[in-house]
Simulated assay, not measured.
Amino acid sequence: MTPDLVLTDAAGAEDRDAILRELIAFNDATVGPSGARPLAVLLRDPETAGTVGGLWGRTSFDWLYVELLVVPERLRGAGFGRALLDRAEREARARGCAGIWLDTFDFQARGFYEKLGFEVFGSISGHPRGRERFFLRKTF
């Protein structure tokens, strides 16, 4: 069989799942299971119970990857960002993780993360153009 190459911006969940299955099978055969588990710490509105912000990530291969972290502007400066990361770190440690990694742009929260003990381990200049993206880690 010779597969077709199909470029699309409308791929579905089944397409992602097919790719992920192959990658997981390869990784498992090479280094063993990743132990991947989702991890979320949510900020909920007490009146509506709706999520207004929080942290979204996953533990995998003994590290917590923080994919998303946002505190609504009206709540910033009240310690919620620190609380989200502290709670996620406690859970990551409970899951046996060695550390946390994440990325942020120069116009976002690099200084905030560094105050919490994260260190830059890489960056991409010009992403987006005229700016910089940083990759940070905190080891336990």
Rank of each mutant, 00 (worst) to 15 (best):
A11N: 04
E22P: 06
R16A: 13
L39F: 02
A36V: 03
L23K: 13
I19C: 03
S34R: 04
D9A: 08
A25P: 02
P33A: 01
L20K: 10
D28C: 09
A11W: 13
P38M: 05
P33S: 03
A40L: 09
P38F: 03
T30I: 00
A40F: 07
T30S: 04
T30D: 01
R16W: 11
E22Y: 11
A25H: 02
A13F: 12
D15K: 08
P38K: 08
I19M: 12
D15V: 10
D9G: 06
A18L: 07
P38G: 10
A29L: 01
A36T: 07
A29W: 01
F26Y: 09
R21M: 07
A18N: 06
R21H: 14
G32T: 06
G12E: 14
A29N: 02
S34T: 07
R16P: 07
A13P: 10
A10S: 13
D17P: 07
G35F: 00
E22N: 10
P33C: 02
G35K: 01
A36W: 12
N27K: 04
R37K: 00
A13C: 11
G12V: 15
A36S: 10
F26L: 04
G32S: 03
A10F: 05
A29Y: 02
D15R: 11
T30C: 02
A10Y: 06
S34P: 01
F26T: 05
A11Q: 12
R21L: 11
F26V: 02
A25W: 00
P33I: 00
L39S: 03
L20T: 10
G12S: 15
L20E: 11
D15S: 10
A36Q: 13
D28I: 00
P38Q: 06
I24T: 10
E22K: 12
R16G: 14
G12A: 15
A11C: 09
L39R: 05
G32R: 04
A18T: 10
D15H: 15
S34W: 00
R37V: 02
L39E: 00
G12M: 09
N27A: 02
R21I: 05
A40Q: 10
